[in-house]
């Protein structure tokens, strides 16, 4: 029926499926900037390459070197410390706030949600800049206030004991609104009837939270926890801005090390091998969490 109305000349031009014209633009770009870089990146990890002279095939040398590189293991450890600090903190804070906001008696829910969410829309670079000022050891408001009540505050970002915690706090603060919104969505997904049943059994509000809300929120917890670990292995901007990996390498996360190897030392092959290892580590962590939570989610259903 359609062909009847297509002029002869047009029909002969349209022998190819028009669908290909629709996808062509996007596909070419995605191949050029996603698929090719991915394959190229893996290939580069088996070479020695400085960006100027031709890449030299070195087999698995980069991976062997990586296993023996103390900075790789040290920065992986920093990244894990970061993850095990930031993820639970963000989950706990997000859940607590969401639980309060979800109560029927809570006034000004929209306002509170907006306030918690505000940092999330600002670039990490800009908020890191503001935090540097707050945490400035001499003139920052944090230490000024501490001094006022008779405590000499640490040097925060310049102190090896506190630097990583500052980064963790900043990142958790930046992402808190996201956790709150996702938890709120999860809470709204729990059917009211479950609570009614619990009330009939005489459960107090606290008991309802413990025995109804928390178990039913496990899928949300799983989602945020997996996303959190993936995000933890990509932390870069805050370290780049606030500490440059210091003091005493205490905040050198793995992506920051990757950046240094790639663009300060211009060892593109070795850096690519580190990138592949990060990718594999994230995949492994995701699978482990998947299995860990799956058992706990399935019990319910």
């Amino acid at each position: 029926m359609k062909t009847l109305q297509v002029p002869i000349s047009a029909r002969s031009r349209r022998r190819t499926n028009p669908a290909y014209d629709f996808v062509a633009g996007a596909l070419v770009l995605i191949v050029l900037f996603q698929v090719v870089p991915c394959i190229w990146g893996i290939a580069l990890s088996f070479t020695r390459y400085d960006g100027m002279n031709a890449a030299q095939w070195v087999g698995a040398d980069n991976y062997r070197r990586l296993l023996a590189d103390p900075t790789v293991s040290a920065s992986l450890l920093v990244t894990l410390k970061y993850a095990f600090g930031a993820v639970p903190l963000s989950l706990a804070a997000g859940l607590t706030i969401a639980l309060a906001l979800d109560e029927k008696w809570f006034r000004g829910k929209a306002l509170a949600r907006t306030l918690f969410f505000a940092p999330n829309v600002i670039s990490l670079v800009a908020v890191a800049f503001v935090w540097e000022w707050l945490l400035n050891p001499k003139f920052g408001v944090v230490n000024t206030v501490l001094q006022g009540i008779g405590i000499t505050g640490p040097a925060w970002l310049n102190d090896p004991r506190t630097a990583l915690w500052c980064i963790i706090l900043m990142q958790v603060w930046h992402g808190l609104g996201f956790a709150v919104i996702v938890f709120l969505a999860g809470l709204q997904g729990i059917p009211e009837t479950y609570y009614e049943a619990a009330r009939l059994d005489g459960a107090s509000r606290m008991q309802q939270v413990r025995h109804v809300t928390l178990p039913l929120l496990m899928p949300t917890v799983m989602f945020l926890s997996i996303m959190g670990f993936i995000g933890a292995f990509q932390v870069f901007q805050s370290v780049f801005m606030m500490t440059g990996g210091g003091p005493a390498d205490r905040t050198r996360v793995i992506v920051y090390y990757l950046w240094q190897v790639a663009f300060d030392r211009v060892e593109l092959g070795y850096a690519s091998a580190i990138a592949v290892v990060i990718f594999v580590a994230v995949l492994a962590l995701t699978l482990v969490q998947w299995r860990f939570y799956r058992d706990r989610v399935e019990v319910l259903t």
Binding site: I30, L32, F33, Q34, V35, V36, P37, C38, W40, G41, I42, L44, G51, I230, F233, Q234, V255, L258, A262, L268, A271, S272, A275, V276, I278, F279, V282
Partner: peptide, 16 residues
């Protein structure tokens, strides 16, 4: 392609 993290594509993207 959604699962490819930026660290892996970063260096080749720069080269491209």
């Amino acid at each position: 392609t959604m699962m490819i993290p930026f660290q892996v594509t970063m260096i080749p993207t720069f080269l491209i």
